[in-house]
Design a protein around this nucleic acid. Structure first.
Lengths: 222, 222
DNA sequence: CTATTTCTTTAAGCCAATCTTAAGTTGAAA
DNA sequence: TTTCAACTTAAGATTGGCTTAAAGAAATAG
């Protein structure tokens, strides 16, 4: 996730940059309004933090002009100006939020997350070597070919992949996929394990889904 | 535009109600959390103003539970509690903004507009292969020919298209289109699915609307 | 206000996909 | 070699979805 900071005070820039990078955002910066617009339009960031007072072009003008070309990317004002009038003007110019300095970094972070929430979809694809499953569409692909799994087969595979590199005991599997919380002496797992492996084209030497005798199974790449 | 206010102080309610109605919003109110959730789910408001401290169920809990069923409608917290920790907790519970009392009505109004602005800029035309629907006029066209759908048929199709490439579970469909939040053992979906497919001229081999047995349905192009 | 049409919901039967059981076979570990 | 867990297969049971018909609501027309 790419965040663009347009702000002229070096102290605030480095404070923000450091904090956001620790949260694994990719941070770009700019210290004046004119270049700011350029970057906003060119860099296709996922979110913009915009200072109110900027050399040259005021922040509110930057925001307005940006919105003429891009109405989607969230913009958050960071500002020392704290009058109702300014807040309103800021929001009317097309910003999505308006945060007053001094602010707590944690709150800023959370407000950033709120804005990104809509565009931030949870990781939808799970991988195991050349097997990929999309948890939204339930589509399973192995090396380019779609594989049709039944409900239970799919659930079993998803469960194993969500717990990649971790042994899934028979008990855990039965509890989580079959919702049986007692009387585990059934061999359904084996039956589904069998058809799953068949459909995926796995063989003993393919060490993608291992059997741990006496315990359960594990999905692991070589 | 319909706004739901969940708040227990009569003074604030009437203040908000009056102000918002002057701005031509349709305002509904509720004074406790339990009924609040009911209304949020049933009334399909465009935005919810939620108090932090509510008799019975705390606001944050109301928000969380609401988000389990509806991830779209904006929620704004109105609260006298002003610690960073609370703000963060509120936003994390799924709210879109968090405004501290006392607030200026003008600012609240503008923040409401910000929320409605973003939810309004959805695409007006949804497509699935050669099927196109216009969400404003409800017109449905397949390869040039207009297809007349009834209300429920249309809603079903729109829902599937809005969630293109994502499995829509029967539960989600029943909750979002029929507003039934319990007792899911009905086969209305099947009946409407049937007539929808007929009218669209879809057949088993047309893989545009797939059945995912035991889960639901998915709209997906080839 | 009543009749008629259209839309929505309920209900039931059918069929096929899927799940489960069970029994025989294999193979790893002691 | 023996034992027992895991694998394989196939038959039988079950469920879930499709379809149709008809009853119940709602909208429209007369």
């Amino acid at each position: 996730m790419k965040i663009l900071i347009i702000e002229d005070e070096p102290g605030i820039i480095s404070f923000l940059k450091q904090g956001l990078e620790e949260e694994h955002f990719e941070v770009h910066t700019c210290t004046n309004g004119k270049d700011g617009i350029e970057l906003m339009l060119r860099e296709s960031s996922d979110l913009v933090l915009l200072d109110w007072m900027l050399p040259g072009l005021p922040g509110i003008e930057v925001c307005k002009r940006f919105r003429e070309h891009n109405s989607k990317t969230p913009v958050i004002f960071l500002t020392a100006r704290d009058t109702v009038h300014d807040t309103i003007a800021g929001l009317q110019s097309g910003a999505n939020d308006y945060i007053k300095k001094p602010f707590h970094f944690e709150e800023l972070l959370e407000r950033i997350r709120v804005q990104l929430r809509t565009s931030l979809k949870e990781p939808a694809v799970l991988k195991l070597a050349d097997i990929q499953i999309d948890v939204n569409s339930h589509m399973v692909v192995r090396s380019g070919n779609e594989i049709y799994l039944t409900q239970k087969e799919y659930e079993l595979l998803e469960y194993l992949l969500r717990n990649k590199d971790k042994v899934c005991t028979r008990k855990e599997i039965i509890e989580n996929i079959w919702n049986i919380h007692f009387d585990y002496n059934t061999s359904v797992i084996d039956v589904f394990m069998n058809s799953l492996r068949k459909k995926l084209g796995l063989h003993k030497q393919d060490d993608l889904i291992h059997t741990i005798r006496g315990v359960g199974f594990i999905a692991r790449e070589s």
